[in-house]
Structures are given as C-alpha cells and as structure tokens.
Amino acid sequence: MSQTSEQRLAVKLPGLNLKNPVMPASGCFAFGDNRYAEMFDLNQLGAIIIKAATLEPRVGNPMPRIAEVPGGVLNAVGLQNPGVDVILKEKLPQLKAKYPELPVIANVAGTQEADYAETARRLSDSGMVDALELNISCPNVKQGGMQFGTDPVSAQAVTAAVKKVSRVPVYVKLSPNVTDIVAIAQAAAAGGADGLSMINTLLGMRLDLKTRQPVLANGTGGLSGPAIKSIAVRMIYQVSQKVDLPIIAMGGISNAEDILEMFMAGASAVAIGTAIFHDPLVFPKVIADLPQKMTDFNIESLSGLIAEVRSQRNEN
C-alpha cells in the first residue's frame, strides 16, 4: 500500500473535505452536546450531522417515543428542537468553540417551502455550517417532512427553493417510504441538489398486547438499525445507477464492513445512528477498524473505491 492511512480514509464531497467518511446521523447525537462527547474526542469524526432545525421551536411528540424490534429501533421523537435561532445562538457556537475543525452538516426541516428556505438561509448565512441536509423524509410529523419526500414535484420544488438561498451545498435526505426512490432522487437532482443522503427511517408500528394500542404515543414510528441495512444498500445501489450525485449513506451501519458495503453500493460517505445506542464507542472503533478491513478486501483508498464503483455504474 503506497498511501498513508490518512489518505486512504479521506473523501471529498461538495463542501466537505473529510479526513474520514464517518459521521453521526441527524437526531442520534443531538448537537454534539451529549455525554458521548465525554467518552471520545469528536475531532476523530469525519463530520457531524446535527439534529434537525426548524424555523420555530418544536416540543416533538408525547412519550413513549422509543420502542424496539429485533435488530432495530422504532422512534417517534417528532423533530423536537429549540428552533433555528437558539441553534444559531447557542448550539452551533458551542459546537464550533469546542471543535473548530470538525465539519458540520445542519439538518433542515419544515412544514412548507417557505420555512424550509428561511431556516436554510439562516443556517447557511451563519458561516458555521459546511453543508445542509434537507430533511424531506421525517416520518414522525403530521405536516411537512415526509410529504415532500414522497412526491417528486414537491421534492424538486423544495430543493430548488432551498438551493436558491443556500450559500453551502445541499444534500437532500430521501425517504425509503416510496415505491420508486430513483424518481425522488432524480427530482432532487433536477431541483439542484449537490448530493443525497439516504435512507431516513422506514415507517413502522408496534402494538401492546395488553392495551391493544400502539406502543408509541404517536402510533407509528421510524424504523432504524441493522434490520433496515439491506434496504438502504438496495436503494443506494439503485439511485447511484441513475443519478450522478454523491451519496451520504445511512441505515443500519454498525461496523467497518457495513461501511465498505455502503461504498460498494454507491456511497461517498456514511452516517451512523442507532448503533451508537448499543456501542457508545462505535465511532472511534469503526474509524480505527477501517484501514485493516480495507486491506482485507483489497481496497487501497476510499476515494479510489468511490471512483471505481461510480465508473461501473456509468457503464450501465
């Protein structure tokens, strides 16, 4: 191997020059202001995707918000966040003060085009974020969220509205709760997206046998964890065949092999969410494991792997 370990893990995406491709998924890591940050240095991360921001504060859904299934977790938090202004005034400055070098991707949610655009404008104008992740795929809110991510016309329009005002690259986060995810990915591309992130959670439900009622107060929730990984792999593979945008992959990743599988499916970076609940040290672990796993599978560098996979897709 001729490349250094650092060169082997580095990846470049629009707005993101990452020393490694690994980042916490939105909603699983708050704004970096959680106790995981006491257990490992967040400077080890490739980047951080912070919790969804909306124009106004949101209290989210009632409890219980969390349930479990074999190999996965159902959540219905409902985009609880203090609103974009508090995030800009308190959360982001605290994060930037502690980790000035850590690239930040801000997740943007809303109920209509105008508030998506205004939230995106404020975040991108702040100079504190390197990219936006446009959340058109949250399954746990009644208005907005997933309705934009399940209709190509809406997906294109909201992407275009946000692109018009954003000074930083925009990654559109896709919902798997659609018949044809390629159509939505193409709509996001037509709206001017700089990249995609996929997949958000799958809509699921559990019932309590004693009460005969849903376990989650919201009724339904979003399924994440290893149970959905093969769906994410399939969708990333399909989208990367038809759309040339870089993809931040998420959906059940819990180890270095999973990361390599996502790259082989068509990813250019990865986010990990649910796995941290089981293993609080999953981030430093997978970053440390990657070089050896790459060697095991004859991968010299991740950037080389991305180029190789994408060139094969283009031939199809």
């Binding site: 699983c28 995981y36 209290v59 941290i276």
Partner: peptide, 29 residues
C-alpha cells in the same frame, strides 16, 4: 422510570416537563 434510547442525552427519547417547560429535560441526563 422511562423507556430510553441512549441514556446519554442524545436521542430525546425520554423527555419530561420540568419547571414550567414542555418536555424540556432528559430523564436520562
């Protein structure tokens, strides 16, 4: 007592209303 996702103040799965706020504190943290 509460169901919890992370136990670390990250996932917002165990919020409670304290001091007049609405679901403003983590039971875990």
């Amino acid at each position: 007592e509460s169901r919890m996702g992370c136990g670390m103040g990250a996932c917002a799965g165990c919020m409670v209303s304290v001091g007049g706020g609405t679901l403003n504190q983590h039971i875990c943290q």
